[in-house]
Design a protein around this nucleic acid. Sequence first.
DNA 1: TGGGATTATATGGGCGTCAATGGGTATATA
DNA 2: TATATACCCATTGACGCCCATATAATCCCA
Lengths: 154, 154
Amino acid sequence: MDLFLSSFINKIDKKGRVSLPSTFRNALPKSNKNEIILYKSIKSDSIEGCGTERLKEISKRINNLDYFSEDYDDFSTSVFSEIIPTNIDKEGRFLIPDELKKYAKIQNEVAFFGQGFFFQLWEPKAGILKREESRKRLLKEKKSLRTILTQQNK
Amino acid sequence: MDLFLSSFINKIDKKGRVSLPSTFRNALPKSNKNEIILYKSIKSDSIEGCGTERLKEISKRINNLDYFSEDYDDFSTSVFSEIIPTNIDKEGRFLIPDELKKYAKIQNEVAFFGQGFFFQLWEPKAGILKREESRKRLLKEKKSLRTILTQQNK
DNA sequence: TGGGATTATATGGGCGTCAATGGGTATATA
DNA sequence: TATATACCCATTGACGCCCATATAATCCCA
């Protein structure tokens, strides 16, 4: 399906390794399944990640901005300089860089949340809380999941 | 017909497998009859499911939202991280993830209720009760079934 | 149209494979 | 040399694939 879907909680071992959930590995681009890019989420205390293909798309978009604009500068700096390419070993595991781990307050376990075109890494409790709040907010505003899911596509 | 219709009660075996009713299997999209997506119903303690073909549409819609909006975040989280893609084996069975099973209080049996474009999984007694209540409510409010049933689609 | 034969569906169980995890050791880098 | 990281191997439990059976549905032909 090539989308990052559902949620998983995996352990970090003594060496700092975590398994990227198998379904997430499968969602990585065929061109490069041995590398992901990680960066601090702009919107929350979580880490975001995705395959290297997406980075190409993003850099194209930034490249289309006016070179002399503030936007170009801001995006270019905050995106490229903050991105951390990370290798996946033969068992499907990777290391979470210390700085990112601190940022997301992650210790022995990580929650993986599919976000479609990318995914997030959370300290499990914080992540689950956030997910519940999102759901509540949608319900409150009556933009129900079911509406989206059952809407007929034409 | 490609609609999920009528009701069935099937058993969950020792391994946790349940048969998706044969007519439901037939209602799955030709493009992918070996996978369904499951998610918690928002309105009730039941699980909802459908074929995978809508997922692309849904992700497009979400992708069209403003990435920096709260809505994007909420939808992305509530949809992508809560959707559970599930494989159907050659006998037409699938596993109900533990978390969903708990949510719907399902144990050894599941009631399948066709809902047209999707279907619901209920703990049998709760599901039957719910169906009776729906029916009573309809009659009470004089929105007779007959009205709906005779309103034919051109 | 009756009734046996064939097929489909729901269900049960064996077994191999894969995913997640743990740990030893080699290689690299500072 | 000390620290970090990659590769290799091992273990466990979950899951997928295969085969089997019983009951229900359908077919087909006399």
